[in-house]
Design a protein around this nucleic acid. Structure first.
Length: 346
DNA sequence: GTAATTTGACCCGT
DNA sequence: ACGGGTCAAATTAC
């Protein structure tokens, strides 16, 4: 059942391709309109135009990613071949063997409670991913998404040049917040990071960050200009060193901050996630602009513009879930270069 | 002194 | 058996 019917996936691909084409057309149209406005002497609406274009580009990027992932599933008949971790089949159970309730692994480290019996997967929390690009190798703190994360592990991944860092909500124990995320620098592009979120923030900061946002997926581009950036509670950076190197202090990695673009996500794997009645409904990846401003969470990041060397790419890691999602992008403001045209999908 | 990070070891799924 | 995810003691920073 969870394997996904190939036909269904192909249909999804076709649908996505169609949407992508529409986005392209819209983008082209926007370009023409903007050009006409500029020739007409209009200078005031430039910012808005750029935002519109950014929106379209973001749409394209997201769709592009989704199509690629769907295609990979379609072509190979199996999930998980994308560049990002694939979502689990979502067995349907809401409990996790270990992290769910038994944090005292020291005592219960034995085999995840055989009594539970039903526990199959390590995690069944909703999962979605984003890619974050920084403008410089040192710019890692921008990966802060406004929420407080605590690093609990780092591991070298087979075949990956850089280690993967594991974070979980600072309030995990105090407020039983199950949110966690994994951050890993991509091999090919040192400035690009894959961020995979697991679970929604059920803690106070999560609610504060998204007071009224009940959308499962939020896409965003946020940039933090070096001068105006104020780091409140620094959220944990992660080592950017190659896996083979010695650990860095982390301080240097956290020291800088500048512009970045993050795009959020999109897909979620667990169906309960969609229910507004569940905590998961507060899911967000990196949230819409302004959510972090004001110090509710961890780092305040103001929306910015004019970032010449950033680009974004959003990813979806569960094409199957997309059809059921609202899939909206409440983009606010952003400036980024559009991605190149997607390659042929088939 | 407290909190966060590092890192080796353990656990689990494939 | 292997690789990824998590834990927790030790270390470091504030």
């Amino acid at each position: 059942m969870e394997g996904g019917v190939p036909e269904e996936k192909c249909a999804l691909v076709a649908e996505l391709v169609q949407v992508l084409e529409m986005a392209r057309q819209l983008e082209t149209h926007m370009a023409v309109v903007v050009q006409q406005q500029q020739q007409g002497g209009g200078g005031a609406g430039g910012g808005a135009d750029q935002r519109y274009r950014a929106l379209v580009s973001t749409m394209r990027a997201s769709i592009d990613r989704a199509v690629h992932m769907a295609v990979s599933c379609c072509a190979e008949g199996r999930p998980g071949t994308g560049q990002l971790p694939e979502s689990p089949p979502s067995g349907g159970d809401g409990s996790s063997p270990r992290s769910g309730g038994s944090d005292h692994a020291g005592e219960l480290r034995g085999r995840g409670n055989a009594a539970a019996g039903q526990c199959k997967k390590r995690k069944t929390l909703p999962k979605w991913s984003t890619q974050v690009r920084v403008s410089a190798v040192q710019d890692v703190s921008p990966l802060d998404d406004g929420l407080s994360w605590r690093k609990y592990g780092q591991k070298d991944i087979l075949g990956a040049k850089y280690p993967r860092s594991y974070f979980r909500c600072t309030h995990r124990h105090t407020q039983s917040c199950q949110a966690s995320k994994q951050v890993q620098r991509t091999d090919g592009d040192p400035l690009l990071f894959d961020v995979v979120y697991h679970g929604a923030h059920t803690c106070a900061q999560g609610a504060a960050a998204h007071p009224s946002n009940q959308q499962p997926a939020v896409q965003e581009q946020t940039t933090s200009p070096s001068p105006g950036f104020e780091a409140g509670t620094a959220v944990l950076p992660f080592s950017l060193r190659p896996a083979s190197n010695k650990p860095t202090t982390g301080a240097d990695a956290a020291a800088t901050s500048s512009r970045f673009v993050t795009t959020g996500c999109v897909s979620v794997t667990a169906s309960p996630f969609l229910s507004p009645a569940t905590p998961e409904s507060q899911l967000v990846s990196s949230s819409s602009s302004g959510y972090a401003v004001g110090g509710g969470g961890g780092v305040a990041m103001a929306g910015v513009r004019n970032v010449p060397d950033v680009e974004l790419a959003s990813t979806t890691n569960s094409p199957m879930a997309m059809g059921e999602m609202d899939f909206m992008f409440p983009l606010d403001a952003a400036d980024f270069l559009e991605l190149g045209n997607p390659a042929s999908y088939f």
